[in-house]
Design a protein around this nucleic acid. Sequence first.
DNA 1: GTCTATAATACGATAGAC
DNA 2: GTCTATCGTATTATAGAC
Lengths: 190, 190
Amino acid sequence: MYAEVMSARDQLIASTQDLLWERGYVGTSPKAIQQRAGAGQGSMYHHFAGKADLALAAIRQNAADLRASAEAAFAQGTTAVERVSAYLLRERDVLRGCPVGRLALDPEIVANPELRAPLEETFDWLRGRLAEVLAEGIANGELPADLDPAATATALVAVLQGGYVLARSSGTVEPFDQAIRGALALLERR
Amino acid sequence: MYAEVMSARDQLIASTQDLLWERGYVGTSPKAIQQRAGAGQGSMYHHFAGKADLALAAIRQNAADLRASAEAAFAQGTTAVERVSAYLLRERDVLRGCPVGRLALDPEIVANPELRAPLEETFDWLRGRLAEVLAEGIANGELPADLDPAATATALVAVLQGGYVLARSSGTVEPFDQAIRGALALLERR
DNA sequence: GTCTATAATACGATAGAC
DNA sequence: GTCTATCGTATTATAGAC
């Protein structure tokens, strides 16, 4: 993906992805998007119907990117705990937060079913994928039989999303790391 | 606290608390605050230096309110697990999210040390308070000796904050409840 | 496809009357 | 203390030329 060969349309989507991540939907203006993309208003309104339409394309791309990188992490390790750990401990720009989860706090995203749908689908997929890995661990005796895969998976995803909140509140990565460590310790010793 | 006897100043703070919770700092305009408070611009700029000054008063009040209601929950129950559960399971307006954690995703809050400070203090206090309760449980043999109280406490606070994110993404309370259930199951069976 | 011009409204704040 | 008037800028588009 070379910036020089990206079409104006793709540049606009990429810039919107960045700005939604950084400032959310409410805090992102079409003007800021255009400036970052190096495109004018005419270009933007030619390719997209407006702010919401462009945001939809960017959110879908953010969701697809997250899914791809999560899938890559799950492929690492052999045991269930190793694969879960690989996902939880993978490199992240913690203080930047999650590009998808971040949008769940935005009132105009949540109020718009079309804009919210990619968030719901992404987290449903992630929780399901993690639950599968945990279920494998239960099936082969690595994890206890009374562990609820779905509830545990949801708790682990929540630890991640909440870890971002605590890290940004404190201005450091420390609470994020501690939350992950605490959650993994609870899981591993069961 | 009767609305009829609240001063214009207190009305402005209360309205700002609501709007920050709902729309964040970036998404909240002085005009909206004034309208909700039933106060004019003159009144607002008489009592506060500007948007940031008013937001600081509202954020501090949000933090104080959260702390008070958390302390009330911790007072319930006798065993450590009961007290932790009482806090995690207390009634919440889940789809509204956390009035304090919500602000951690706002770029202008995080960029302003004065506005971020109440967030950091609130979560430091909450993690410490939870860690104390867990440490008591370890001391009296209710919880295993190898449990790290601080890391576990941070993980539990993260589950809450992340639960809000998942609930708002899905449009239902279900993922929040499931995350809490999953986390408590991991803690109780250790 | 992209440009510039224009529009109606909102933002965040200040000024000065009352 | 609160009011209205005003300010300069930003927002989210639309219109029409190129």
